[in-house]
């Protein structure tokens, strides 16, 4: 690969990839904060969003200083996998999460809940999930 092509790929990884990873970070750590550390949903959303800048910054620096593109992408991939694992582990894993429940965490306690949906009260946050045993 030519030098300039490599440079372009690095720039794209830094800007687009960095932004994508930081948004991923801002979403993935929210369940961990709410379920394990008992923060309210809005608090943990703010915390992860604020910290995601740090994530962006680190990805940009890494994009330009790792020796090869392959090692860069490998590292970023591992990081993404860790984030995903964290997200999956924090959401109670024996329960299938309602697909549009995205909304999962967003549903606050006072909303109407249908039969096959139950709520767990994890202190401050109410998780909604469909119970498809």
């Amino acid at each position: 690969m030519t030098h300039s092509k490599q440079l372009w790929l690095r720039c794209i990884t830094a800007t687009v990839g960095g932004y994508a990873i930081s948004t991923g970070f801002s979403i993935a750590l929210v369940p961990a904060l709410t379920v394990w550390l008992n923060y309210t949903l809005s608090t943990s959303v703010l915390i992860t969003t604020m910290l995601s800048y740090l994530c962006y910054f680190i990805v940009i620096i890494l994009s330009f200083c790792l020796p090869t593109l392959l090692s860069l992408w490998r590292n970023l991939f591992i990081f993404c996998a860790l984030l995903l694992a964290c997200y999956q582990m924090a959401i109670p894993n024996n329960l299938h999460v309602n697909s549009k429940t995205e909304s999962v965490l967003s549903m606050m306690s006072n909303q109407t809940i249908s039969n096959n949906i139950t709520t767990i009260n994890s202190h401050t946050l109410n998780l909604t999930y469909s119970n498809n045993s």
Binding site: I27, V30, V45, T49, Y53, E102
Partner: peptide, 13 residues
């Protein structure tokens, strides 16, 4: 902060 990285708020709300 929530304007530049809105994904988390959009995702959970």
């Amino acid at each position: 902060v929530t304007t530049y990285i809105p994904s988390s708020t959009q995702h959970f709300y």
